[in-house]
Design a binder for these strands. Structure first.
Length: 347
DNA sequence: TCTGGGGTCCTAGGACCC
DNA sequence: TCTGGGGTCCTAGGACCC
């Protein structure tokens, strides 16, 4: 019995939230991202109006500004987006017993019957309660549902019957497949594989030789096969924070104080709920080369002091270089659930 | 085009243990 | 003594996603 999987994806989420707060922005090019004047950063989201000028997510903000100086540039109000997200996810969670949130503005859920009616009901409810539009894709697995939700954006609804999976995917560019990005696309293009249809026909053994397990995934995906498992509980794997300096930095004291402030924010975010065993430091130099250095302890830690001290040690070999970015991440997390687990660590 | 910040997962080599 | 194989953990780098 095949399942009915639905992917709900909010349209231009950040900028749409901003338009709700300030209706004057509606129908205008709006960009959420870095400050275009001190331009170090990228476009996080832009409105459909801005996309007409060639703007898109992840575009360097300086380039966006050249293409569309008349747009309204906003630095982003994540508290606001979080509030909207909470409302939307509450609606979706109430709709289905199988629900999986993906970031702030997307979710998968399982439908039972009359999926189209169900989808319209969801779209209406979101629109009524938040003023925002969502696009929904429906298929027999997450892969199809996700690509379908993107098919008729914005405010779209696309249902792909399982027997149409291959025909639906076939003309689409390989870039639409989850997992095919900037690097994989040209590798496949070299093989003469440009559309998902090309990929579906391509010899699977050759793909496996080139890409390993990922090759098997690619072949299956291109043939419309994918997971239909909706995982309801999310277990955090790591938690980190990073900061790009306004100008590349060589000043040790300034870097140290940045480390302290990043560490403090990470510790705050653990909410005394997580122990960590591994600390990773990330350093990006002025030429954009990026390094990571990690240290794993035998016992789980919670202390900010250890985080700061270890990060400084890991940073040591890079002092003297022009540093663009510095980041800290904690992993090997153990969730503190009870007093008993405290005792286990002799605390 | 001059490249954010939050993440996850995979790979490969080396250490170490049995 | 110049030498096997399996398993696990750690580190570093990289690709990708939202």
């Amino acid at each position: 019995m095949s399942k009915i999987i639905m992917h709900v994806d909010m349209d231009a989420f950040f900028t749409s939230c901003e338009e709700q707060q300030d209706p004057c922005l509606k129908g205008k090019p709006v960009v959420v991202g870095a400050d275009p004047k001190h331009g170090r950063g990228v476009v996080a989201t832009c409105s459909y109006e801005a996309r007409k000028y060639g703007l898109h997510s992840a575009m360097p903000i300086s380039r966006a500004y050249k293409l569309c100086p008349q747009a309204t540039y906003l630095k982003g109000n994540f508290q606001l987006y979080y509030e909207y997200s909470k409302k939307i996810m509450e609606i979706l969670r109430a709709c289905s017993s199988k629900f999986q949130q993906m970031g702030l503005d997307e979710a998968y859920l399982e439908a039972t019957n009359s999926p189209k009616k169900f989808a319209y009901k969801i779209k209406n409810e979101i629109k009524q309660k938040t003023g925002l539009t969502a696009s929904i894709g429906i298929g027999n697995n997450k892969l199809i549902a996700k690509i379908a939700s993107d098919f008729q954006k914005p405010d779209g609804l696309t249902l792909v019957p399982p027997e149409n999976n291959k025909n639906f995917l076939s003309p689409l560019p390989i870039r639409k497949l989850h997992g095919v990005g900037r690097k994989t696309e040209p590798k496949l293009a070299k093989l003469g594989v440009n559309t998902i249809g090309d990929l579906a026909k391509y010899n699977q053994e050759k793909l496996t030789k080139m890409f390993g397990i990922f090759g098997i995934y690619l072949h299956n995906a291109a043939n419309g096969m994918g997971s239909d498992y909706i995982s309801e509980d999310y277990e955090r794997v790591s938690l980190g924070k990073e900061r790009t300096f306004f100008e590349d930095c060589t000043d040790r004291e300034k870097i140290y104080s940045t480390i302290s402030s990043i560490a403090a924010q990470i510790i705050r975010r653990t909410e005394q709920k997580y122990f960590f065993k591994t600390i990773s430091l990330k350093v990006r130099l002025s030429n954009f080369t990026t390094f990571t250095r990690a240290k794993t302890f035998k016992f789980p830690c919670t202390s900010k002091d250890i985080l700061v001290r270890t990060s400084k040690q890991l940073l040591d070999e890079f002092l003297g270089n022009k540093i663009r970015l510095i980041g800290i991440r904690i992993s090997h997390l153990e969730e503190l659930k009870s007093q008993r687990s405290l005792k286990q660590y002799g605390i």
